[in-house]
């Protein structure tokens, strides 16, 4: 069997409960928040490492973000990834999905050899799910979104996966190279190897690339490269509710509730 060159795209996201909105300035406070690897991207890493165990080859991690992402790149190495690249430059900042997928695609081109590009189905902060098909288009690879149960048929250079549909699923097979968005919960991410962690933190191969290190056109990355703009932010308003607390024993509460709900019964 032919060894596989696997690219694992990851993102570091703030823990959802940590993000606060300044209601006065309507800006998002992301200062000292705790972060984590985007949960479906953990499934990406597990899938990449499992495939490497099955087929041999190499797992290369790529991310785009500020320098604070770097420890998480090392965490991916501690889980078993071989090397990591972080696209980090102010010029990449404030990118929408078009500019993000372009920059990542160019980073992947620079890494060079790839059979599979694995991404999480969506990020927990942006939740657009549009970057994986975007990367696939820039690199002109096939794509499988919302995938689980990935099977690489390396002799025929195909990949097969179960893919989520509205109210169902399908099993499809496409040629390599392929960009895959991995369904959240597709597997259980392995824990780090503690010996590897020591190595990853001290000597793990993490390379930081600035915009000038990869072949990108300045007007196609970051804010200038983003056709969409944020026109405003607002605090979510919730509908006024009655908020009537029902008292008494469960039997009494049930009786009152059924009275209140009579129109629906």
């Amino acid at each position: 069997m032919r060894p596989l060159q696997i690219i694992a795209c990851v993102k570091v996201v703030p823990k959802p409960e940590e993000v606060k909105v300044d209601t006065k300035t309507m800006t998002i406070e992301r200062g000292e928040v705790r972060s984590e690897i985007n949960p479906p991207d953990m499934n990406v890493l597990e899938m990449a490492l499992t495939l490497k165990e099955q087929h041999g080859g190499k797992v290369t991690v790529i991310a785009m973000g500020p320098p604070l992402f770097e420890p998480y790149m090392r965490l991916a190495l501690a889980m078993g990834a071989d090397e990591a690249y972080l696209l980090s430059d102010r010029a990449f900042a404030a990118a929408d999905t078009l500019a993000t997928s372009y920059a990542l695609a160019q980073g992947i081109r620079k890494i060079g050899d790839y059979d599979l590009i694995l991404c999480g189905e969506e990020s927990s902060d942006g939740a657009t799910a549009q970057v994986p098909p975007g990367i696939a288009e820039w690199l002109e690879t096939s794509q499988i979104t919302y995938a689980e149960d990935l099977e690489v048929l390396s002799d025929s250079k195909m990949v097969k996966a179960k893919r989520e549909l509205a109210g169902g699923y399908e099993v499809i097979q496409v040629p390599l190279p392929c960009t895959v968005s991995v369904k959240i919960g597709a597997n259980e991410p392995r824990f780090m190897d503690m010996e590897r962690k020591v190595w990853a933190e001290a000597d793990g191969p993490v390379t930081v690339w600035a915009a000038s290190d990869i072949d990108v056109e300045a007007e196609m990355i970051g804010l200038p490269g983003s056709p969409t703009i944020v026109d405003g932010l607002a605090q979510a308003e919730s509908t006024e509710r009655k908020r009537e607390f029902l008292e008494g024993t469960p039997e009494e509460q049930a009786k009152v509730l059924v009275e209140r709900l009579r129109p629906y019964l």
Binding site: P227, V230, G232, A234
Partner: peptide, 17 residues
Amino acid sequence: VWGFGGGVIAYIKCPDN
């Protein structure tokens, strides 16, 4: 769009493309 799971609503537009 709902963002960040924190009750933020963002309004997004695409002026030129």
